[in-house]
């Protein structure tokens, strides 16, 4: 259940961006940079809260930069996204080597504080005492409410579906796209922070394509928060299964076990979902 957190944060991040018509595969990069940001600022300040705030700020600033490229300069969104991801992965590796003279990890650091009195609850204590996990559960309702019940959500979705129609009614199309991408940066950063905080260390390659899986979960969930929740739960379940299989050791070669979550993605995409319909103007610069 805990593994679900980064997927759901990432998938919701992607959804806010795509609902506004911006395909944002840079989520992976946002997660990497915020995990790293959290790691560095926690190490250097000694405070996990400082790490949290800085990581969010860093991710949001990068999402502003991304907006500049794809909304203002209308660069192809896929190209910009791939560029961002490569840049972040490279930057992370470089900073680790440069700052810690280690080829792969940072030193250990603190995790975020917990809601301590809930920790003692049996079985569920670990989940219920984690702010970010709780937030991501709440996000099912928050996202649904914001997207479908508020003025903001209606306008955001309208620019992702038919920006010409939105504009003819006086909606500032690019501004709403910007909002979409910034919310995306914010949610993605929480995913990165959670990952780093949980491992108490940042290592090169630790994000391991979770951003992409999140995007897959969003597609499988047909751009709807509740369906995305189910998709993320499924991925988390298979990842947990993979981990427990690896730990317990089976006759199945570990490589195959590791492939499991990804194979399931493919199978689900091929077999069970049927036709999915993205926002009509998704990926088209305006």
């Amino acid at each position: 259940m805990r593994l679900f957190t980064p997927y759901y944060l990432g998938a919701n991040a992607a959804n806010f961006s795509e609902r506004s018509g911006v395909i944002n595969i840079a989520i992976e990069g946002f997660i990497i940079i915020s995990a790293l940001g959290y790691a560095l600022f926690t190490i250097f300040s000694g405070s996990a809260i400082v790490g949290l705030v800085m990581a969010v700020l860093i991710s949001v600033s990068f999402s502003l930069l991304f907006s500049l490229f794809v909304i203002k300069l209308k660069i192809n969104q896929i190209v910009a996204g791939v560029g961002f991801n490569l840049l972040m992965a490279g930057l992370a590796k470089f900073l680790i080597v440069f700052l810690f003279q280690s080829s792969s990890n940072t030193p250990r650091f603190n995790s975020l504080p917990n809601i301590f009195f809930l920790e003692s609850i049996p079985y569920l204590g670990k989940v219920l005492s984690d702010y970010i996990i709780l937030f991501s559960f709440a996000l099912v309702f928050i996202s649904n409410f914001v997207l479908f019940k508020t003025k903001f959500g209606l306008r955001l979705r309208s620019v992702g579906e038919n920006p010409e129609a939105g504009e003819s009614l006086g909606i500032k199309v690019r501004l709403y796209k910007l909002y979409g991408v910034i919310i995306c940066g914010f949610l993605a950063s929480l995913g990165g922070i959670w990952l780093a905080s949980n491992q108490n260390s940042f290592s090169d390659g630790m994000i391991a394509g979770r951003g992409y899986i999140a995007i897959a979960a969003m597609i499988i969930g047909k751009w709807k928060p509740v369906n995305i929740f189910i998709a993320c739960m499924m991925f988390a379940f298979f990842e947990a299964l993979e981990i427990s299989l690896q730990i317990s050791g089976t006759f199945i070669p570990s490589q195959i076990v590791q492939m499991l979550p990804y194979m399931i993605t493919l199978l689900v995409l091929i077999g069970f979902i049927g036709k999915t319909k993205p926002p009509a103007a998704d990926g088209i610069p305006y």
Partner: peptide, 25 residues
Amino acid sequence: FMLIEDFTVMENVILGSEKTLNIKI
């Protein structure tokens, strides 16, 4: 027509001039 195919009639009509109650439409 300047309509959004995937929106309901209501959503299309109120878009841009929504009546709100607190933060909700």
